[in-house]
Amino acid sequence: MEASPIVSHLSGKSRFDDIYEQPDPRPYFRRLAPLQYEIPHHAQPVFRRSVEECRARSTGRRDVTVLDICCSYGINAALLNHDLTLADLYTHYTSPAATRLTAAELIHSDKEFYAAHRRDDAVAVVGLDVSAPAIKYAVAVGLLDDAYAENLERRPPSTALRRAASRVGLLTLTGGGSYITERTFGAVLACTQSPAQVAAFVLRGIPYDRIAAVLASHGLHTAVDHSRTYPQRLFTGPEEQRMALADVVRAGLDPSGREASGRYHAVLYESRPASEETAEAG
């Protein structure tokens, strides 16, 4: 999900710092519901497919471990590993029953909630985000197996994060492309012990070429279909839309029917070991 902002690559993009600094995700869902934030819904089947691809590649080794970059409250992990939809999570966290609970009571309740919906094919998920409260909640309710509140844009990964990243087979991202660069990807991939795969949803106005170049230096080939876009959320107002339109046009893309209609749109970048891409092409 979108991380607590550091510096956005998009001019005029609204900031939501406060909703990532709460002890649980209720403010997150209350704030984003009117904006129809939906990119995790689109990512859910993609990430599950990516996990199966990684499983096929790692036959005979340990099961896949996922590193969710800009993980916030573990929303992607919730959708990946549980028989739940994003709509279910909106309903759950904005319900009158949830509203009446203290943060501690909600955490206790959510442990049981997620355990009851856990899929048999669930995988280990490591979280990376700058928000300590968000990842603390996600670990407490069992969404994340490990989590690290570190800013790899500013400093190298800790010893503990390097150890956790060494077993990662899949890196995922939804929304955080507004706030991180190739530095974060490079720092993580430098720790992995075997070829990792990347599935990243990035807003159309954000350039990805530097990230793709770093991924290539780690043996990954990146593919993207710019004609297939995924709605992220409504704009917060005319000024945000105006700036988003300018960013998309600057990127050489057509905003008609997408940003011009009132929503941010993302594209999916998928990076796989270049050796596999070459073999398939042959």
Rank of each mutant, 00 (worst) to 15 (best):
A3S: 10
H9R: 15
S11K: 12
K13H: 08
F16K: 03
D17K: 09
D17S: 12
I19S: 07
Y20G: 09
Q22H: 11
R26W: 01
R30C: 06
R31I: 01
Y37S: 11
Y37V: 09
R55N: 07
A56V: 09
R61D: 10
V66S: 07
L67I: 06
D68Y: 05
Y73G: 07
G74L: 03
A78R: 04
A78N: 04
L80K: 02
N81E: 13
D83V: 06
L89N: 08
A98P: 01
T99K: 14
R100S: 14
T102G: 10
A103K: 04
A103V: 08
I107Q: 07
I107M: 05
D110H: 13
E112G: 02
F113M: 02
F113V: 06
Y114V: 03
A115I: 04
V130Q: 06
S131Y: 04
A132D: 08
I135C: 07
K136N: 05
V139F: 04
V139P: 02
G142D: 09
L143W: 01
D145G: 14
Y148D: 06
Y148P: 07
E153K: 08
R155W: 08
P157G: 06
T159G: 11
T159W: 02
A160S: 12
R163P: 03
R167V: 15
T174D: 14
G177P: 11
E182S: 13
T184S: 12
T184L: 12
T184M: 09
F185Q: 14
F185S: 12
C191A: 13
C191G: 03
S194E: 15
R204F: 13
I206A: 01
I206P: 09
A212H: 05
A212C: 14
V214E: 15
G219I: 14
L220C: 06
V224P: 02
V224E: 09
V224R: 07
Y230F: 15
R233Y: 08
F235T: 00
P238L: 07
E239M: 11
E240Y: 14
R242W: 04
A246F: 03
G252T: 08
Y264I: 00
Y264G: 04
V267D: 06
L268P: 06
Y269W: 13
S275C: 01
E277Q: 09
E277R: 12
E280Q: 11
